[in-house]
């Protein structure tokens, strides 16, 4: 009787879980899973990759995409020294409030400044991009259902449209983007950046690096979180065992 009940429950859960898989097949192929330094319970960010990714962001993405939740000082999280951060910041011109005449002024960014935004506001961004708004990248990896794998797949998924595909003007064909039409032209090209550490800048390498950087940007607390988590879980496993033993002892005289 009990077995039958669980079998019924299991079958039901199985059927319900299978539903969405069938429904999604019609849209875009599932992005293939990539190997990421940050995945898994003990995964940490590959800092060299994240720094290369920041280089890609600076020279490519940041021409259209803002990252308004990040500050230059945050780059300490991917291993930049205070001097490097100061240098990186000072290469960027950002608004610095008002001068004594009350006019808005700009100047080199400080470590405490937020990342430079390519456009002063949303309207300006849309006007410069055929009406499309390049989304802010601070939390992009978290806000897209496929996460890092999806972003990587889109960055490397530009192709010639198949014959007969009705591509709207101003749109680009992408294998992995839902509906296969994306307003962003192919952003990454081979050798678009020259990596200081000599890594060969293929499209795949650039995509991999920039996704590592973006994942860090969206989850800067991740490494500390996992480190504390391992300790907390070990402690609680120990406490659970200890409490259970004491419970057995306390209850041993109750019949």
């Amino acid at each position: 009787m009990r077995l039958a009940r669980f079998a019924l429950l299991g079958a039901l859960v199985g059927a319900l879980a299978a539903g969405p898989a069938l429904a999604q097949e019609a849209e875009a192929p599932t992005p293939p899973a990539q190997k990421w330094s940050f995945s898994g319970l003990f995964g940490t960010f590959d800092l060299a990759a994240a720094q290369r990714g920041f280089q890609v962001y600076e020279s490519v993405c940041s021409n259209c995409h803002s990252m308004r939740l990040l500050h230059y000082r945050d780059l300490a999280g991917i291993g930049l020294t205070p001097e490097q951060i100061k240098a990186v910041a000072s290469h960027n011109t950002v608004p610095l409030g008002l001068n004594d005449q009350g006019e808005p002024i700009t100047g080199p960014a400080l470590p405490s400044s937020p990342f430079r935004s390519p456009f002063p506001n949303e309207k300006a961004a849309r006007a410069a991009n055929n009406g499309a708004l390049p989304p802010d990248q601070s939390l992009m990896v978290n806000s897209l259902p496929g996460g890092p794998d999806f972003v990587y797949a889109v960055l490397t998924g530009y192709k010639e449209p198949p014959p007969g595909f009705n591509l709207q003007s101003g749109m680009n064909y992408n294998e992995y983007f839902p509906g296969h039409q994306i307003a962003m032209p192919q952003p990454l090209q081979a050798d678009q950046v020259e990596y200081a550490d000599g890594t060969k800048a293929t499209i795949e390498q650039e995509a991999h690096d920039v996704v590592t950087f973006l994942t860090w940007a969206a989850n800067p607390e991740m490494v500390q979180r996992k480190q504390i988590g391992v300790r907390v879980v070990l402690f609680l496993v120990l406490m659970t065992g200890l409490t259970y033993v004491v419970k057995r002892k306390v209850w041993s005289d109750v019949h």
Binding site: L41, I228, G229, V233, L236, V237, T243, Y244
Partner: peptide
């Protein structure tokens, strides 16, 4: 101490599951 200790066992298991969720799968 009978149910304080028995509730403590449950609390530990509860916190353990909670911690796994918070530290490893927060979203």
């Amino acid at each position: 101490p009978y149910y304080t200790i028995k509730d403590s066992v449950g609390t530990c298991v509860f916190l353990l599951i909670f911690a796994i969720l918070v530290f490893f799968f927060p979203n």
